[in-house]
């Protein structure tokens, strides 16, 4: 059997989940033997050129680019995994969900205490900048997600166990201490 192909992405996340993946320490050598990485910040492959077995996504969707990226992953991965609280329920970015976008932008670009009073007061608005969404969306509100791995970030051991399960078909073992929402 050829190695399962894994792709990963960070959308509206902080890269903490990817850092946690690296926290599997020297098991990363075993992982390289077990799977092949395709599009991922880990190897800097930018575009899908083949179908992947597993897509692992950190972060929810806060802008139009996140949504496009997520749909691209859904199209190119047989299994999609939502990794971490932001992917599962929006996480910290979703704390803006009850605040109108206009107010958020005004606070960030016009009213914030760190704004230099000499700077022109502009809310960035350019075709090249992804459009911010009305609120932050967990992944499964946009596309079908097959598996969820909670945690902020998910513990390295949980990610490791899940990857092993996906790669080898062994039964998922979740020790109590590694299953957390924070």
């Amino acid at each position: 059997m050829s190695k399962p192909i894994v792709a990963t992405a960070s959308l509206a996340g902080c890269f903490g989940c990817h850092m946690s993946l690296l926290d599997i320490d020297d098991r990363i050598l075993q992982l390289i033997d077990l799977v092949e990485f395709h599009k991922s910040p880990v190897d800097d492959i930018k575009k899908f050129t083949k179908m992947c077995d597993v897509g692992i996504i950190e972060g929810g969707c806060c802008n139009s680019e996140n949504v496009e990226n997520l749909r691209d992953f859904r199209k190119n991965c047989k299994i999609l995994v939502a990794l971490g609280e932001c992917a599962i329920m929006g996480g910290l970015p979703a704390m803006r969900n009850d605040i109108p976008v206009k107010e958020c932008l005004e606070e960030a670009y016009l009213g914030s205490p760190t704004i230099d009073p000499k700077d022109p007061k502009i809310i960035p608005n350019d075709d090249d900048i992804p459009m911010i969404l009305d609120r932050v969306y967990p992944l499964h509100e946009i596309v079908k997600i097959d598996y969820f791995l909670p945690g902020c970030p998910p513990r390295a051991d949980l990610i490791w166990e899940a990857l092993l399960t996906l790669a080898t078909g062994k039964e998922l073992n979740i020790p109590y201490e590694v299953f957390k929402f924070d």
Binding site: M89, L92, M95
Partner: peptide, 10 residues
Amino acid sequence: NHMCPTCEKS
């Protein structure tokens, strides 16, 4: 709105 990572009670 239960955002565990932001909550002191977590």
